[in-house]
Write a protein that binds this DNA or RNA. Sequence first.
DNA 1: CTGAAAGCGCTTACAG
DNA 2: CTGAAAGCGCTTACAG
Lengths: 335, 335
Amino acid sequence: MITLKELADRCGVSTATVSNAINGKSNISETTKQRILQMIKETGYKPNFMARTLRVNSKRTIGLVIEELAAFSSAPIIEGIMRYFEKQKYETILYNMRVYSNPNWMNDEDFVQTCVNNAVEELLSKQVNGIIHVAEHSRKLKYYNENLPVPVVISYAYPDERKLPYVSIDDNSSTAKMAEYILSKGHKKIAMICGSKDNLHAEKRCNSFKRVLKEHGVPLDENLCVYANWTRETGKAAAAKVLKKGVSAVFCHNDFIAAGVYDYLYEKNLQPGKDLLVTGFDNHIISSFLHPEITTMKLPLLEIGEKSAELMDNLLENDSTCTEGFEIPCELILR
Amino acid sequence: MITLKELADRCGVSTATVSNAINGKSNISETTKQRILQMIKETGYKPNFMARTLRVNSKRTIGLVIEELAAFSSAPIIEGIMRYFEKQKYETILYNMRVYSNPNWMNDEDFVQTCVNNAVEELLSKQVNGIIHVAEHSRKLKYYNENLPVPVVISYAYPDERKLPYVSIDDNSSTAKMAEYILSKGHKKIAMICGSKDNLHAEKRCNSFKRVLKEHGVPLDENLCVYANWTRETGKAAAAKVLKKGVSAVFCHNDFIAAGVYDYLYEKNLQPGKDLLVTGFDNHIISSFLHPEITTMKLPLLEIGEKSAELMDNLLENDSTCTEGFEIPCELILR
DNA sequence: CTGAAAGCGCTTACAG
DNA sequence: CTGAAAGCGCTTACAG
């Protein structure tokens, strides 16, 4: 690949002049400028990005630490971030940790910590101005130590006690909306199939749901609250436990659990939606392909991305010490 | 951020010595090495990646031009590519063109060409050794002119007459498998709902399906072959046209069309799978959430990614002029 | 084992 | 309007 120096030689001018031509400086005669641009076309010269930023020593680049690019939530969050930064003329670079490469990653904090360390190392060496961590699912992250030279924003999860700005979803208000919807349909005997124990989402949804039902004078029977593990299979198993007890509605903590409930109902020759109201959470694409389509809560993934980017922008341009967190409400999708 | 020079000053050694310590060279005493490493920890020094590669002038980096990160096929293909290159010690950098930002992108070749030009510009300026173009859907791509300084591989699509190496799916053999499956179930009156006209997949699947049916003495009635536009809605509309004619099986060119057929059947109080055999294509996640789950063809996305990476590796390490293309068969998923 | 010096490909005052 | 020179943060022969 030809360099700026070689290009200058071919044109019989100095490197400074070529540089000025390329960067559209005004202090250059039109004729030499045209000669240089012509030569650039002929030779296919491309400026060396590394050399340039090394010299200029100022880039506007945000590093994205993606836990798992293949997670269904990642792409929309990234889209939200990129959309925002495109307007703000920041470049984004992705680092995909690919945590799914370790099937046991959820129980292996050391593994994830190592991944994060590598990611941060690489992004810092690429001189990013800030880091946004895009989580695979919401939990308390403790991977970032406090003396990093650039700000960090947590997207789709929470920081631990080391306070970091974050954007996640508002499980409480969202669950409340769902509870009120179910109550508005006149149901009195309601079940709940929760996500895994010790999970932040599950905990919040569980508490919020119980609280709202209680407030409406229809407290949840503890026997009608069981745990699954976010999957279709565990959802079906949970359904078998709880649905014999004559409930008329069941609130599932995600759409896959709800799909498992459907499986159970089909097996018993019961009709979802008619014999039992089933509601989900996430608005995963599958939720509109269940039959009948299921009422669910839409995760504001794009908005989470955009808000995360906005927080980072603010951190960089204004207050670099802000540790505010945001929870964005979900949207009830009636079907 | 502290530089190597400053670090050297603090340790009272030369920059050469620090560099040697960092890069694990053997020509350095253990004591000074320890002193330097200790100082690195204290100061949080990170080497500047740009400066390093500028000097060393050899990176092993592959640029990925992603048409749309949010496309359902993109993440698995990227995963395949990254998995391969991780072993080969190549770094990958992503450029997300985000074509969905233009709803009309499919009919706007100029728009896509501009996106590609920007992507290539940026990746070349970052000194990538090669470019893999990850398409959103299969078609003939004519975005890359022949005098690029690095090799290009097309992933999940085809090159135009300018021959480039590519990896796509084998529509012919996959469709043949599907046709034989349907025939093996004894169906004689079979319909087909194709993807959009002028689409490469649709064309191949259409021709292949007709050929196999003919070979088995059950030629497809031309009236039973209609076009949809890959979506659920157009699939349903197509079903309305073709299913009145008493067919017992319908081959849909993708799972969304099949979902549309389900919608039509439900509306008519007919049972998919019982009153009509419906088969899909793609093994999109929704295919296992339709009720009943649908028989489909699994796209070998991971394999496409891995093979693309392997082609690039080969191009770089061995024959830089190879323009071989590969088509990978899909897997029949019986449900 | 250690350091002085050159140079990777650019940009930017500055002098003319 | 143009060019000589310094320098961004590193690494690498080379001399000692």
